[in-house]
Simulated scan of single mutants.
Amino acid sequence: MTTLYEIDAKTIDGETRPLRDYAGKTLLVVNVASKCGFTPQYAGLEALYRKYADKGLVILGFPCNQFGAQEPRPESEIATFCSSNYGVSFPMFAKIDVNGADAHPLYKFLKRAAPGVLGSEAIKWNFTKFLVDKSGKVVKRYAPTDTPESIEKDIEAAL
């Protein structure tokens, strides 16, 4: 796999979505969970999406249950939780693995393009974020502790 746009992902509603649909957009890709200490970041992510969507920002949320079983719900309940508690309107996808043999191809791509601390590719926890520019190049990887508000300047620069 040579580009992000060659990858497909299943939406939270079960439809296959080619990531090429997002070509020409600035992306913030986030592995999310509803029972995580960082879950309130959904509010900040949604605020960024509403503020910058008309300028080309798309946030892609990928639920993951690999960290402390913090996303045990089925997709239908995840969608309801995100909508009713945080007003999430950005695209959400089906639950995936981000590490290990069954890691989704998107996360294999992202981790190779932007390794973490000391070159480690492993995702350490939920709410790790990847900023991808309009050409599909990974610009930066952010730790779960990096809030959506703290990366806003980087997003503005990428737009």
Rank of each mutant, 00 (worst) to 15 (best):
M1Y: 12
T3S: 13
L4V: 14
E6T: 07
K10N: 09
T11N: 12
I12P: 00
D13K: 15
R17V: 08
P18S: 15
L19T: 11
R20V: 13
G24T: 01
K25Y: 09
V30D: 01
S34K: 00
G37M: 05
G37T: 01
T39N: 03
T39I: 08
L45E: 08
L45I: 06
E46C: 05
E46M: 08
L48P: 06
F62A: 02
Q66T: 13
F67R: 06
G68F: 01
A69H: 10
E75K: 12
E77R: 10
E77K: 11
T80W: 08
F81K: 00
C82Q: 06
S83N: 09
S84Q: 06
N85G: 05
Y86H: 12
G87T: 02
G87Q: 05
F90E: 04
F90H: 06
P91F: 01
M92K: 02
A94G: 09
A94W: 03
K95R: 08
D97C: 15
A101P: 11
A101M: 12
D102G: 06
A103Q: 15
P105A: 03
L106D: 01
Y107Q: 09
K108P: 00
L110M: 13
A114I: 04
V117D: 06
L118A: 12
G119F: 11
A122M: 15
I123Y: 00
W125F: 09
N126M: 01
N126F: 01
F127D: 01
F130P: 03
L131P: 04
V132W: 03
G136S: 07
V138F: 15
P144E: 11
T145H: 14
T145W: 09
T147Q: 10
T147I: 14
P148Q: 13
P148T: 07
S150I: 09
E152C: 09
E156C: 10
E156H: 05
A158C: 06
